[in-house]
Design a binder for these strands. Structure first.
Length: 182
DNA sequence: ATGACGATGCACT
DNA sequence: GTGCATCGTCATG
């Protein structure tokens, strides 16, 4: 995977890619792009801080942060300029289903990783993963085996720049955090 | 030192 | 569809 691609491009390229953490995970079916200091919704919009420092480091690392005081969210730092990242929002579980069921406390595969906080719980991602390279254990990342149909829509859960169509998903997938409007 | 506010998920109506 | 848990981070004083 080309981590130097800009986030809007990279977020689309990630749809259909395989993400495993410690052998547990699945196919990436939903992502969002965050485009640095030009993007009012990005954590890096107001410059570098202790929390978002990883976003200003080299691409190809994991940026992990806590959301609403209780969930973790996973991003892939990317691009040729600092402050860019792609939020991983949902997976189609393919490996380690029982492990994920145990961590999540739910049975239905479609409820295992259908949201940024859910997938971090299912893959046991926390602050300890912040800054780790994505091309080395415990991470395994592989591009899509074949081209996939990508749906496009506005990003979720933000108040600024909420109109930008920077959410991407596997068209028609039942594993999305929320369906796309056709 | 303090206060406002989330790149959410879940239970409940 | 609505309400709320829950706390780190950041801007402000």
């Amino acid at each position: 995977m080309d981590f130097t691609a800009d986030p809007v491009t990279f977020a689309q390229e990630l749809i259909g890619a395989t993400l495993l953490v410690g052998g547990v995970g699945g196919l990436i079916v939903e992502t969002e792009a965050y485009d640095g200091e030009d993007d009012p919704a990005a954590h890096s919009f107001r410059g570098q801080t202790a929390r978002n420092a990883v976003m200003f480091g080299p691409p190809g690392r994991a940026y992990v942060y806590r959301s609403y005081g209780l969930h973790w969210c996973l991003n892939f730092v990317c691009g040729s300029r600092p402050g860019r990242a792609v939020l991983i929002r949902a997976l189609e579980p393919t490996s380690g289903l029982d492990v994920m069921r145990g961590r999540r406390g739910v049975e239905a595969p479609r409820s295992l990783c259908s949201g940024p906080g859910k997938l971090c719980q299912a893959l046991a991602i926390d602050l300890g993963h912040n800054g780790l390279p994505l091309d080395a254990p415990p991470f395994q990342l592989a591009p899509p085996a074949a081209p996939v149909p990508v749906a496009i829509g506005p990003r979720i859960g933000i108040t600024r720049a909420a109109d930008l169509p920077w959410r991407f998903g596997l068209a028609g997938s039942p594993f999305l955090s929320k369906p796309f409007r056709d």
